[in-house]
Lab assay of single mutants.
Amino acid sequence: NMTTNERRVIVPADPTLWSTDHVRQWLEWAVKEYGLPDVNILLFQNIDGKELCKMTKDDFQRLTPSYNADILLSHLHYLRE
């Protein structure tokens, strides 16, 4: 019986294949993992993996503070390698 913190996010390895639900799961995981403040996951609700991967730093900064944008982008970049 796992707690929420221990729950593994199971999403496709390639972020471009993510559904909007996968994006939400990834964001929820990242918020907990990195202790990100002020991430409004609802702002990302219509973004799927293909859109997420096209987003620039400016795009991320429209949805979340700069600090969060940096961490989310670097993790996304890591996943795409």
Results as ranks from 00 to 15, higher is better:
V9A: 15
K54Q: 07
W18Q: 02
L27P: 02
L73E: 04
N46P: 04
Y67F: 04
V9Y: 09
K50A: 13
D59A: 14
L63Q: 03
R80V: 09
L79F: 05
M55D: 01
V31G: 06
P65Y: 15
L17Y: 08
D38L: 01
T16L: 14
P12H: 03
H75I: 05
N1H: 04
P37G: 10
L42S: 12
Y78H: 07
D14R: 01
Y34H: 09
E6S: 07
H22F: 01
L76C: 06
Y34D: 03
S19V: 01
H22A: 04
S66M: 04
E6R: 08
D14T: 03
V23L: 01
E81Q: 12
P12S: 05
L36F: 10
T4H: 06
D14G: 01
N1I: 12
V31L: 03
L76A: 03
F44Y: 08
F60Y: 03
T16H: 15
L72H: 00
N40C: 05
T16M: 12
T56C: 11
S19E: 06
D21P: 02
L76I: 13
S19Q: 04
T56M: 04
L43Y: 08
W18Y: 01
Y34K: 09
I47V: 12
E33Q: 12
L72F: 10
Y67P: 13
L79D: 07
D21N: 07
K57P: 10
Q45N: 05
E28M: 11
G49T: 00
I47A: 02
T3K: 07
L43G: 11
R24M: 11
R80A: 12
A13S: 14
Y67W: 10
Y78K: 15
L42V: 10
S19A: 05
K57L: 08
N5P: 08
I71A: 13
M2S: 07
D48V: 03
M2F: 09
Q45V: 06
N68L: 02
L73I: 10
A13V: 11
L79M: 15
N1W: 05
D48P: 04
E6H: 12
W26M: 00
S66T: 07
E33C: 03
N40H: 04
F60T: 00
Y78F: 08
S74D: 09
S74W: 02
D59R: 06
L42M: 12
H22D: 11
I47E: 01
N5F: 14
N1R: 09
L79G: 05
F44I: 02
Y67V: 12
V9T: 14
T3A: 10
V23W: 01
Y78T: 15
M2N: 10
V11D: 12
N40G: 03
T20H: 11
V11K: 13
V23M: 00
Q25M: 12
M2E: 05
T64W: 08
T16Q: 05
R62A: 12
L79N: 04
E6V: 06
N5G: 11
N40E: 13
L17Q: 13
L42Y: 11
T64P: 02
P12D: 10
R8S: 07
D70P: 03
Q61K: 13
E6F: 12
D38F: 02
E6A: 06
L76F: 02
E81Y: 09
F60C: 03
D59M: 05
S74G: 13
H75N: 14
L63T: 02
P15Q: 02
E81M: 03
L73G: 05
D48H: 04
H77C: 15
K32W: 06
R24K: 11
K50Q: 11
L42D: 09
T20Q: 09
W26A: 00
E6Y: 08
Q25R: 11
L43I: 05
L73Q: 06
R62H: 06
Y78P: 10
E33T: 06
N68Y: 03
E81N: 15
R24N: 07
I41Y: 09
I41A: 06
V39F: 13
F60K: 00
R24S: 11
P12W: 06
T3H: 07
V9K: 15
P65H: 15
Y34L: 06
E28K: 10
G49Q: 01
F60H: 02
T4F: 14
H75P: 02
G49M: 01
K50H: 07
D48W: 00
H75C: 05
L17K: 14
A30K: 07
I47G: 00
L27F: 02
K32R: 09
I10H: 15
I47T: 04
L43R: 10
A30Q: 11
K32S: 07
G35F: 04
E28V: 10
W29T: 14
V11S: 15
P65L: 06
A13I: 14
N68R: 04
T3I: 11
R24G: 08
P37H: 12
D38Q: 09
R24D: 00
W26N: 01
Q25I: 11
Q61G: 11
H22V: 05
P37C: 12
S66P: 13
R80C: 15
Y67T: 15
N5M: 14
Y78M: 15
T16Y: 12
A13M: 10
E51H: 07
H77G: 15
K50T: 12
W18V: 00
T4D: 13
E28Q: 09
L72N: 00
T16N: 09
A69L: 01
T4W: 12
K32C: 08
M2C: 06
R8V: 02
N5I: 13
E51M: 09
Y67L: 10
V9W: 13
H77V: 08
L72W: 02
P15W: 02
V31P: 02
L36T: 03
R80Y: 02
E51P: 00
S19L: 02
D59I: 02
M55S: 00
E81H: 15
R24V: 11
S66I: 05
R62V: 09
E33N: 09
E6T: 11
C53E: 02
